[in-house]
Design a protein around this nucleic acid. Structure first.
Lengths: 342, 342
DNA sequence: TTGTATGCGTTATCAG
DNA sequence: CTGATAACGCATACAA
């Protein structure tokens, strides 16, 4: 009584299990009348097919999984919505699977492929640094979306959609220079970061150099290793260090909008103002940056386009219409009220 | 070659499948030596057990699922982290499952219970309005966490953790009254909301009445039905309507912090200021409210405590240590800079 | 300590 | 159109 199976339904209907199965799965070769009867019985008894059994038996399913590290990143929510829409539009189903900070995303993916007979995978966010051997375990198409890619990986062996973190950082810092700032700090990730944090830091340094400014280590305010880096509270702490220092920075480039917002708050709490006392720039283009007061000058990643491109590439590969491709998107510098000319 | 199964491993090792199974599942009755050998072969060949088959075979598993509606709600992220920690601490595993806006969470739950042989479920957020009959389909312990409960459901038949949305709203609006405001608007959910939106609206009205103010329909700024309600952009729109009206409101109570922030922004963009021209109060106690400029006066739900309580109740039921319980938490009014005495 | 055989709930392949 | 029946990959009772 507890758990009702397809056999029970069959018995209740006085038909064979295969007939029930046909009814469930909308097979054409079944009498409409018997089908309705079966469906009726199913409804009455709240029969629910066991997915494990289905997945086990099925050789393939039309489902795409999105694996995401750090599910609470507001940056992703817009993309996820688009993924969902697009995937549904293609008559595929969609699984969102969160991968823990400590987990290996590829392992999780391989497992999921087996369990759910996936058709494709989207890796969203985080860092990605896997050997080719590891990646080869994945025998389904996948694309890395908004993920920093290390040079460990061979181009052509995978697909990706991203912005050029180095170039976009450069763009922002170059802009700050163009506003007349000579002492520009950076609210950075940890010194050991090997991912976007590093790329954004390097873009910052290069932009300074190209503007005839020698980057100084004292301008680099790094996050501690033991805390979450891309948070408002971290931005708050870092900016307090900036203000406590005598580095004379007039502008700071925060490597994310959350950090930038925390930084602004620190300035206000110190009784100073943005952009008069300190200019603050962010990165990502979150809604929040736009609604903050002052609006945050930031680099807006074209999340919608990137999400669409991710899907397009994935399905192109699934349908064998194309090889792997790496798409780099152009981001946009949004001038907000948090920066000014000096 | 493509997909390697337990049989392949067995053959490769020259042992039986049950031995391999024992090695995988850490059974005691296996020779340490053979176990190591098997594990070795498994590693070399990247064998990964098929979860569908395992779930199908297993009669029970130690796993808890958290079903969440609207996964991008920043309000939840802190709770999820705690769920994860606590569940791991109990040696259970943890599945986070997003349920689509259109889906029926109970159906999803029932399906998941069968598929994964769940031990318990946490429903997080959203509205909850299911008949007892529906709930009876769920034969595992569950608790509704931060969910508005309708009176359709019989107390004692389920567990829940929440705040009293009515009372807390009342608290906030009463506070606004105490600051001397006589014309207080509300940025509300849709007029048809039957959930927290309604409760918060009612708390608002009651507080006005108790302060000798007759609620006016023109003070109620409702969200449109076709847009997401608890967003900054909605708050922005609603506040613009407030300012365009000649209702003379001096303070608005936004039914969420996101709405409140959008509202503040609208005020700024209109060249006015908060709290001088308009006072704005929120609800939820997001980090964001604290980092905003000005800080938002809000009702802070004790999310950490609530998350812990959720877990405790769930496990108490699982372990038969207690019956269903409904816990109502006290929230805290945080006075920010977005409100003032007039 | 180990291997064999059975069944978990489905779907797919066959004959009817 | 329908109904047996054989897999799917694994865990386990039972036999060895």
């Amino acid at each position: 009584m507890d758990t009702i199976t397809i056999k029970d339904v069959a018995r209740l209907c006085g038909v064979g299990v295969s007939t029930v199965s046909r009814a469930i799965n909308n097979h054409p070769d079944i009498n409409e009348e018997t089908k309705q009867k079966v469906l009726q019985v199913i409804k009455e008894n709240h029969y629910i097919p066991n997915n494990s059994a289905r997945n086990l038996k099925r050789s393939a399913s039309k489902t795409i999984a999105v694996l995401i590290k750090g599910i609470d990143n507001p940056f992703f929510s817009g993309m996820i919505k688009i993924f969902e829409e697009e995937i549904q539009k293609k008559k595929y189903s969609f699984i969102l699977h969160r991968v823990d900070e400590g987990e290996d995303e590829v392992d999780v993916a391989v497992e999921l492929v087996k369990e759910k007979k996936l058709k494709g995978i989207i890796f969203l966010g985080g860092y990605f640094s896997h050997s080719q051997a590891k990646l080869d375990q994945l025998d389904v198409p996948f694309v890395l979306s908004t993920i920093a890619i290390t040079d460990k990986m061979e181009a052509g062996k995978f697909s990706s959609v991203s912005v050029d973190d180095f170039a976009e950082s450069y763009k922002m810092v170059d802009y700050l220079c163009s506003l007349g700032h000579k002492h520009i700090g950076i609210l950075a990730a940890t010194p050991y970061d090997e991912s976007i944090g590093k790329l954004r830091l390097e873009g910052y340094k290069k932009a300074l150099e190209d503007n005839g400014i020698t980057p100084r280590e004292e301008w680099c305010f790094y996050s501690q290793e033991d805390i979450e880096c891309y948070t408002m509270s971290n931005g708050y702490e870092l900016m307090n260090k900036v203000m406590a220092s005598d580095t004379g920075v007039t502008a700071v480039f925060a490597v994310s909008d959350s950090i930038a917002i925390g930084a602004c708050k620190a300035v206000f709490d110190a009784g100073k103002s943005v952009p008069e006392d300190y200019c603050v720039a962010g990165f990502d283009g979150l809604d929040m940056a736009h609604y903050y007061n002052p609006t945050i000058t930031t680099i807006r990643q074209p999340v919608e386009e990137m999400a669409h491109a991710t899907i397009r590439i994935l399905f192109d590969i699934i349908r064998n219409k194309s090889q792997n491709q790496q798409r780099i998107f152009q981001a946009q510098l949004l001038e907000g009220q948090s920066t000014r000319r000096i």
